[in-house]
Amino acid sequence: MKLHFFHLPYLSDGPAIEQLLITFILMMHMCFLGFTVSSLLQRFGRNGMYVLSIAALLFFTIIGFLCTYFQWWGNILGWLSYHSVFYIMMWTIPVIVIYMIASYCLPRRATL
């Protein structure tokens, strides 16, 4: 019958160790992203969060506009569908390391 409790077709492909690593890397990414954002809040306060929010909004708006203007969406989706989730998650490991360094360095200079 092929009944699965949590079986997402693209995410559940591959061996069990890859599925565990995908989940682990995703959780590490979210964990250290939260640490980094909370460290920014502690270090720079409310104004720093306003600046971060506006900068992120502008950055992603410009990226979305450029992708639409130059018609890159097909190429991006083609690249994502060509590679496995495990391969794409391996590209997030350097980002996680940057989050780790930022979440370590920012609170050291913050006033508590």
Rank of each mutant, 00 (worst) to 15 (best):
M1I: 05
M1V: 08
K2G: 10
H4Q: 11
H4L: 05
F5R: 06
F6M: 04
H7K: 11
Y10N: 11
Y10S: 07
L11R: 05
G14S: 09
P15L: 01
I17N: 04
I17E: 05
I17Y: 09
Q19T: 07
Q19I: 12
L20I: 12
L20Y: 11
L21K: 05
L21Q: 13
I22N: 09
I22E: 01
F24K: 08
F24E: 09
I25R: 03
M27L: 15
M27Y: 02
M28P: 00
H29N: 10
M30L: 13
M30W: 10
C31V: 02
F32G: 00
F32K: 00
L33K: 04
G34T: 04
F35Q: 02
F35T: 00
V37D: 08
S39E: 04
S39T: 06
L41P: 02
Q42A: 13
R43I: 03
F44S: 01
G45S: 10
G45Y: 02
R46D: 03
N47S: 13
N47F: 06
N47W: 02
N47Q: 14
M49G: 13
M49E: 12
M49S: 07
V51Q: 10
V51T: 13
V51C: 03
S53R: 06
A56D: 01
L57R: 00
L57W: 05
F59M: 15
T61Y: 14
T61I: 14
T61S: 15
T61E: 04
I62Q: 02
I63R: 10
G64Y: 11
G64L: 06
F65T: 13
T68V: 06
Q71F: 13
W73L: 15
W73N: 15
G78R: 08
G78Y: 06
L80I: 12
L80S: 06
S81Q: 10
S81Y: 08
H83P: 00
S84G: 09
I88P: 01
M89L: 06
M89W: 09
T92H: 06
T92Y: 08
P94C: 10
P94M: 04
V97G: 09
Y99Q: 08
Y99I: 01
Y99K: 01
M100G: 01
M100P: 00
I101G: 05
I101F: 13
S103Q: 03
S103D: 07
L106H: 07
L106F: 04
R108N: 03
R109V: 04
T111N: 09
